[in-house]
């Protein structure tokens, strides 16, 4: 690659080349996330000034209340929103690359539906279930359904991608129908409570959730970035990828497992927050062109910013009523996305 427009280091044991524009966009998105974090800490029923927030964060809270509001409620919640957005976006980006299908998102591997079914069934059938068990249930449900789809789709060779997509469609439809059945024929108040969870919401997130999400992000993301070069080879089609020395079957399985893990941990904490996984990678494509690795980073940042903003808006806009972040994500993300569609040529994964 030429070094014009590149940030590169070509000699020595560590060598790379990165496009400058994409790096700039990435910087902007990360900046946006920081701004969202600060604003989220300021806004709410107990408003704080920017200086108060900074003071609280640096250990000199202006009041007891500020200390509690920032550290107990707003900070972990915002962190959870940002991390969940990033995780779902990464999962979607990986899946779109692996399947070479721009419509792929975490619901294709059954993660959202599995988590949804597990929790909704629990809410409807066993309403006394402690809230604390929901993440566990969601995680289990997500993994179980994802494993079911993989197990059914992966057993034979050849035409793997198409079979994987179609199996995903079939199983997902089945699981969604079960969930709908619970919602439709369960008791109305429980159904509504379940509906709220299904929409994806971070309002219950505390430090344990935020810590868990941030931990997942830190553990799994390096793995995903390590996988970015195989992913790029994978996009060239099966025969070429084998020719380039890629273990195609194993790589596909590993990448899908990774995206399942990413999405499942996010869904476990905040519910099946839809749309980010589908749309964040496309937003990233349309903001700047880049190789696969940088595109992953851009997607993650875009997803984080989207969910962070959605949580902020959903919390503040109709206060004291809180609109689940999942819903605001769609309501907020769609206009942005449509604007991007109208501005730029399609540049599919």
């Amino acid at each position: 690659m030429t070094t014009a427009g590149m940030f590169s280091r070509l000699d020595g044991p560590v060598s790379f080349a990165l496009p400058l524009r994409a790096l700039a966009v990435l910087g902007l998105l990360l900046g946006l996330c920081c701004v969202l974090l600060i604003v989220s800490l300021m806004a709410g029923s107990y408003p704080l000034g920017a200086l108060d927030v900074v003071a609280t964060l640096t250990g000199r809270p202006p009041s007891e209340m500020a200390q509690t509001v920032v550290w107990q409620f707003r900070f972990p919640r915002t962190l959870a929103a940002l991390a969940a957005g990033a995780l779902l976006a990464l999962s979607g980006a990986a899946l779109q690359n692996v399947t070479r299908n721009p419509l792929a998102d975490p619901s294709l591997v059954g993660v959202s539906q599995g988590a949804g079914l597990a929790v909704v069934a629990a809410i409807v059938v066993w309403p006394d279930l402690p809230q604390a068990l929901r993440p566990l249930l969601a995680f289990g449900g997500a993994l179980a359904v994802a494993a079911l789809i993989q197990g059914i789709a992966m057993r034979r060779t050849g035409g793997a991608t198409m079979r994987f997509i179609l199996t995903g469609i079939g199983i997902a439809a089945f699981i969604s129908a079960l969930t709908s059945a619970f919602l439709t024929y369960g008791q109305i108040d429980r159904a509504v409570s379940a509906l709220g969870w299904l929409a994806g919401s971070v309002h219950a997130a505390g430090w344990s959730e935020a810590g868990m999400l941030a931990g997942t992000l830190l553990c799994l993301v390096p793995a995903l970035f390590a996988a970015s070069r195989p992913m790029a080879a994978m996009r060239m089609g099966q025969d070429v990828a084998v020719g380039l020395g890629l273990k195609v079957g194993r790589t596909r399985a590993a990448l899908i497992t990774l995206s399942v893990a990413l999405a499942a941990s996010a869904v476990a904490m905040v519910g099946p927050l839809g749309f980010v996984g589908l749309v964040a990678p496309h937003i990233a494509h349309r903001l700047a062109r880049s190789g696969v690795g940088l595109h992953l980073a851009l997607s993650a940042a875009a997803g984080a910013a989207l969910v962070g903003a959605a949580d902020l808006v959903g919390r503040v806009a109709f206060a004291p009523v809180q609109i689940p972040a999942g819903l605001v994500t769609a309501i907020l993300g769609v206009p942005i996305f449509v604007w991007l569609i109208l501005r730029t040529q399609a540049r599919p994964a």
Partner: peptide, 22 residues
């Protein structure tokens, strides 16, 4: 483009429907 626009509009309206239901 058609598919992406469709997915976007779909997500948008579905979110509004859920908000209304909630």
């Amino acid at each position: 483009t058609l598919i992406l626009a469709g997915a976007a509009v779909m997500a948008f309206l579905a979110a509004l429907v859920t908000v209304a239901s909630l």
